[in-house]
């Protein structure tokens, strides 16, 4: 009888504690991406200027600011900000080897990814735009004029593009680094 009284007395607060724990846990998991100062964008902040591709240098032990990257790759990053206008990304995929490119929003989520076989005649000509800029561009482009560029609407005004060049075999190291010279990132002059 005494045990039962004790149970009846502490069961409601215990259940309340568990419910609160579940709610706090769910909110915390959802809030971490907004509060984190260690996401890919933050880690790449020191890599180079905005709207320009920069080769990410490895540390003495081959470490990178981004974890879990393929150790066999050279990586170049372009952090972009399209609040003042679109950013053009060009790549020359004509050399042998393997280059993959990915477009990310401010939170690191990928909104476009391709390999060097995905370009048009060995080239990539992409324009990163906001949804509003995309609407204006579409309006300005005559219907009978074929669009030569790939227009990618970025979910956020800030983001980054990664170009990864894989070292195919040990003799390919210099070439793999050189392949990244074929990627560029630049603000689009206003028309």
């Amino acid at each position: 009888m005494k045990d039962r009284d004790l149970l009846m007395e502490w069961l409601p607060p215990a259940l309340a504690a568990l419910t609160i724990a579940a709610i706090v846990h769910i909110i915390a998991i959802l809030v971490v991406p907004r509060l984190s100062t260690l996401d890919a964008w933050d880690r790449l902040a020191g890599a180079g200027p905005l709207n320009r591709f920069t080769l990410i240098e490895r540390g003495a032990n081959g470490e990178l600011p981004l974890p879990f990257e393929d150790p066999r790759t050279f990586i170049a990053v372009c952090r972009y900000d399209i609040s003042n206008g679109p950013v053009r990304v060009r790549a020359d995929f004509s050399s042998d080897g393997l280059v993959v490119m990915s477009f990310h929003d401010r939170h690191g989520a990928t909104f476009y990814g391709l390999t060097d076989r995905g370009g048009l005649r060995g080239r990539l000509d992409a324009l990163i735009v906001t949804r509003a800029q995309l609407a204006t561009l579409d309006e300005d482009t005559p219907d009978d004029e074929p669009v030569q560029e790939l227009r990618l609407a970025s979910p956020t005004t800030e983001g980054f593009v990664l170009a990864r060049s894989v070292i195919v075999d040990p003799t390919d190291e210099e070439n793999a680094r050189r392949r990244l010279a074929g990627v560029s990132c630049a603000t689009q002059p206003a028309r």
Partner: peptide, 19 residues
Amino acid sequence: PYTRAHRARMGDVPLSQGE
């Protein structure tokens, strides 16, 4: 949400299906 939280904390950029 767990993967997103982990990605935000680790800063890793996994390969996308296009790559």
